[in-house]
Every structure is written in structure tokens, then in C-alpha cells.
Design a protein around this nucleic acid. Structure first.
Lengths: 110, 110
DNA sequence: GAGACATACTTCGTACCACGAAGTATCGTG
DNA sequence: CACGATACTTCGTGGTACGAAGTATGTCTC
């Protein structure tokens, strides 16, 4: 839907936002993103998982494998304290950034 | 100021926006961006010029060298018809994209 | 007139990251 | 049992912002 470059800075923020709710597994996060944006912010599984792995490496989220018979193995993710701090910082940055861009492109010739 | 990843999708839009006014040379575009965003959207010259060259390659902008004695040589850029079309498309994309992101991160748990 | 600083542009290499492709495996449904 | 949905993995690639280093000229100050 949207240019990949455009999405670059906000995919982490989107996923962190989803994880403020109950713990979710990867596939579920992808589906939720799709639903909550009316299909506009859908992204491929390879992107989704690579971001999840990266965020876990950085200690922003914590994954826990759950295996039950009759259900496929799933890795459920929750936010860590660090993740919550990063989320807050990224929210603020997103807000400031979009405000700055809007100001420049809105008043393009003054 | 802002994360490079965040800026990725919008630098072209920002520069195109600046060029809706009178023709500008590279250095001038950088300074204008700095001023108009209160220093928030400043970016290094290597970034600035690489984007300008790319946009000219793609036919979005047209550069013209101006040399006068007593003034350093400067390349002044203007928007092409194609550039104006791209600007319009990127403006719309930016608006739709930020709206979608805001919707998802705003209602993070519904 | 020498040194410092702003102006103005160039080139090159690097690192990050979203994505496509291909694959593995399990579950439900007709 | 074939097919599609679910669920995750791995690997390679290409686009791109950036840092570093360089060239060159104008202005200001002492």
C-alpha cells in the first residue's frame, strides 16, 4: 500500500503499540495491523518477524513459546520495561516529526 | 535531530515542497529546510546532494548552473511537470500514511 | 595579507533495514 | 486426501541516509 521507505521509521512504533495490549504472537500482530489500518499498513511476514527478532535482541520485547497439543507452536510477545520506554520515546518522536514535516510542506512557499 | 529511518520516506517530499517556490540552489535548500523547521529537519550535505542528483536523474527536477564573477558557481533547481505530479502524489501518500499510523498507534488497545 | 569561517558542491564507502523468495510444519474443512 | 489458513524461519538483495574527506571561492577580522 505505502512506499517501503515511508514505513521505515514507524514499523517498530506500530508493533510496540499493538503490544501495549495483551500478549500477542507474530502472526496475530500481523493480522491486527492489517485490520486496524483497513489493510493499509499490511506488511509481509518476513518484515514482521525480522522486526520482532530485532526488537527482542534489543530487549524491547520478550517472547515466550507456547506449545499445546491441537495448537501450533506460537511465540507470544510482551513489552519489557525498556520496550515501554522506547515506545514512549518513539511516540513523542513521531508526533514531533510529523508536526515538523507538516509545517514545512504545508507552508511550502512563504 | 530525528532518527534517520524516520526521515527516509519524507526527504524527497520536503525538498519538492521547497521547490514549489522560486528556483533554489542546493545549499540554499538545506538552509531553508533548517530554518523552516527550526533546525529539526536539518540533514547533512551528502544526503541533500545525493537526493537532488537522484531526483534530477528521475526527471523530477531540473538543475541549471549559474556562474557569475564574484559569486560561487551554483546549480539552481526547478520542478519539472513530472516533479509536480510526484509532489502531489507524495503529499497525498504522506497524509494518508500518517492518518493510518495515527489511527493504529492512537487506539493501541481496543 | 593571512588566517578563519561561511559558502557551495563532489565522491566514495558503509550500515541499516524492508522485502521477496523459498521453505518447514501443523491444523481444519470439504 | 487435497487445499487453504495458520505459524514461523532463513537468506539474499537493493535502496538510501549518512559520515568522511576533499576541492574551491568569497567575506570578515586583526
Amino acid at each position: 500500500m505505502f512506499n517501503s521507505e515511508l514505513k521505515r521509521g514507524s514499523l517498530e512504533l506500530l508493533i510496540l503499540s499493538v503490544l501495549t495490549g495483551p500478549r500477542r504472537h507474530g502472526y496475530e500482530i500481523g493480522k491486527l495491523m492489517d485490520q486496524r489500518s483497513d489493510g493499509k499498513l499490511e506488511f509481509p511476514v518476513s518484515t514482521l518477524y525480522s522486526i520482532l527478532y530485532r526488537m527482542e535482541d534489543r530487549g524491547w520485547i520478550k517472547g515466550r513459546w507456547v506449545e499445546k497439543k491441537g495448537v501450533r507452536r506460537r511465540c507470544y510477545y510482551t513489552l519489557t520495561a525498556k520496550g515501554r520506554a522506547v515506545l514512549e520515546a518513539q511516540q513523542k518522536e513521531w508526533k514531533d516529526f510529523t508536526a515538523a514535516v507538516n509545517r514545512v510542506i504545508g507552508v511550502s512557499y512563504a
